[in-house]
Simulated scan of single mutants.
Amino acid sequence: MKKRKNHSPDFKAKVVLEAIRKEMTLAKLSKKYGVHLLRATHAKLPATHAKHV
């Protein structure tokens, strides 16, 4: 059984920021960073639906 990857907050922020910019599709982002497509999607959702203060 493979051990799960633990990504740093900096890595997660980098992936989310690129997903928000929409310069690449989520499929290309997930391939570039080696994360599952759903992980990239789920990380993006809270950032795009956050209320701005």
Rank of each mutant, 00 (worst) to 15 (best):
K28A: 14
S8R: 03
N6V: 15
K22P: 01
V16W: 02
L37C: 04
A43P: 04
K3L: 09
H7D: 09
G34P: 10
F11S: 12
K14P: 00
E18Q: 15
H42R: 15
K5L: 13
G34A: 12
K22N: 05
G34N: 13
N6G: 09
L45C: 06
V53K: 12
K44W: 02
M1Q: 07
K5M: 13
I20L: 08
H36I: 01
H49E: 06
S30M: 13
V15A: 00
K14F: 00
K22F: 01
H42P: 04
K44H: 03
N6F: 08
K51I: 08
A43C: 07
T41K: 07
A47D: 12
N6R: 15
R4N: 09
L26D: 05
H49K: 05
V35D: 05
A27W: 03
K14Q: 04
H42I: 08
H52R: 08
V35Q: 07
D10W: 14
A43T: 05
T41M: 05
A47W: 11
P46N: 00
M24L: 12
A13R: 12
H49I: 01
H42S: 13
A27N: 06
K44C: 02
E18C: 10
H42N: 15
K3V: 09
K44Y: 06
A13S: 09
K32Q: 06
K51M: 11
V15M: 00
P46H: 00
V15N: 00
L29V: 12
H52D: 04
K2S: 13
K3G: 12
K51G: 06
R39N: 13
K51N: 07
H49S: 06
K32C: 01
D10S: 12
H36S: 11
K32I: 02
Y33I: 03
E23Q: 14
T25Y: 00
T25G: 03
F11W: 12
A50H: 11
K2A: 14
K3R: 11
A50G: 08
L29N: 07
A50L: 14
D10L: 11
S8D: 08
A19H: 03
L45Q: 07
H36G: 04
M1S: 13
A19V: 03
Y33K: 01
